Computed example of a mutant assay.
Amino acid sequence: MPDTPDLVVIGAGIVGAACAYHATRAGLSVTVVDRGPIVGGTTGAGEGNILVSDKELGPELDLALLSNRQWRALADLPLDGTTFGRTVELEPKGGLVVATGQAPLDVMRRLAGKQQARGIEALAVPAHDLNEHEPHLAADLAGGYLYPQDMQVHPMLAAAHLLRLARQRGATVLTHQPVTGYLRDGDRVVGARTPHRDIAAGAVLNAAGPWAGEVAALAAVHLPVAPRRGFILVTEPLPPIIRHKVYLADYIADVASDSAALQTSAVVEGTRAGTVLIGASRERAGFDHTFSLPALRALARGAVRLFPGLERVSTIRAYHGFRPYCPDHLPVIGPDPRAPGLFHACGHEGAGIGLSMGTGLLIAQVLAGEHPDIDLQPFRPDRFTESST
């Protein structure tokens, strides 16, 4: 480990890994620290979504498109006699968004029109053509839209191999070392403190996922990042019966909701191993690890609504994670003027996997003194007041 790395990254999940990868590519020396193991938090409980289909026009869509390009560029990187994409199960399977009636289909049509003007591929699929794309889909749906740019990745593999690539460029990864404070030179943050060591650094990056608010508070700055719990059901391995990521249009509105109550919307996709992942739920319940039978039952009902044949399929497990929720549904990316030397890359909620590569690139560009590819003003850390929840 260098005596004084250019950057200390707090968090060894997918966002921290992407930031470390891009920072080392930019020639910076990096040390990554995490309170637990690699991908021991939100990333280890994710589905691996890389989506543009669920984004309204605005800064998050700009970030999603930037990230999508970064993921596609990384897919062909040679790795272990194959490619990065194959190693981390990066699949450009596309997304199919479907509607149960004419009203949600009309909402989808308006959104797709705006997205198409921004350069997103959104292909209308009439009801009678849905089964050409998904033969086992319910027969009574009103129609949908196909998004070829949507992808899926194995999130744990992706984060682990991004960190591996960063280590090959000299990065150090320290696990089971929670950050307990910062080193300061006047107002400036000049390093991080753990129970095991002080790490002086040129800059410190808070990529602590749902714990990012607590990590920011150690520097006496306010970030209203809170955990939003979500459950996922996993079926027994099946023959390949689901070709795309398939979800109801309701999912888009639920993700953008400010409600703290339990919400579920059907999201179904297959994996390379043959299992089917069933989501998605969300509720603001703090760091409560209690399993919610109402949430799991609602997920099962939603999946069967989309794919009736799943009614006869067994589930083999369920898991949950805590997504880093921000009240304005935008991530926090960039330098914090309230604590010079401190940067943030957090608050991505359920989109962290997909948005991670663009986030890492932007952080590396700022640290290297370059002009970022997209405007960071909407993501600035000091946009919140103390009353933000």
Rank of each mutant, 00 (worst) to 15 (best):
I38K: 03
E89N: 05
V33S: 06
Q152I: 15
L79V: 13
D76G: 04
G36V: 01
R69V: 05
V39E: 09
G16N: 10
L65K: 14
L79P: 00
Y21E: 14
L105H: 01
D54M: 06
L130Y: 10
G85Y: 01
G95A: 15
G144Y: 07
L61R: 11
D34E: 08
L57G: 01
H128N: 15
T31F: 10
Q152M: 12
Y147K: 05
L90H: 05
R109C: 02
G44M: 06
L141T: 02
L137C: 03
G11T: 12
P78D: 05
P37I: 09
Q152G: 14
D140M: 00
V125P: 02
T87L: 05
G27W: 09
R72H: 07
S53C: 15
L77A: 05
G48Q: 02
Y145V: 08
H136R: 11
T43R: 09
R110C: 03
V97Q: 11
R118I: 01
P126T: 08
A75S: 11
K114Y: 00
G113Y: 01
A23W: 11
K114S: 02
A75G: 04
D140E: 07
A103V: 10
R110A: 06
R118P: 00
K55T: 02
E91H: 07
H128S: 13
A73L: 12
T82Y: 00
G101Y: 03
H136L: 06
Q149L: 13
Y145W: 15
H136T: 09
D106A: 10
I10N: 08
A23E: 12
T82G: 14
Q149E: 14
T31I: 14
K114F: 00
H133S: 02
L105C: 05
I120H: 03
E132V: 11
A112M: 06
L61V: 10
G46C: 10
P37E: 12
A64N: 10
A139T: 09
G144H: 08
I14C: 03
E47R: 01
V97M: 13
P92Q: 13
A112Y: 02
G144A: 12
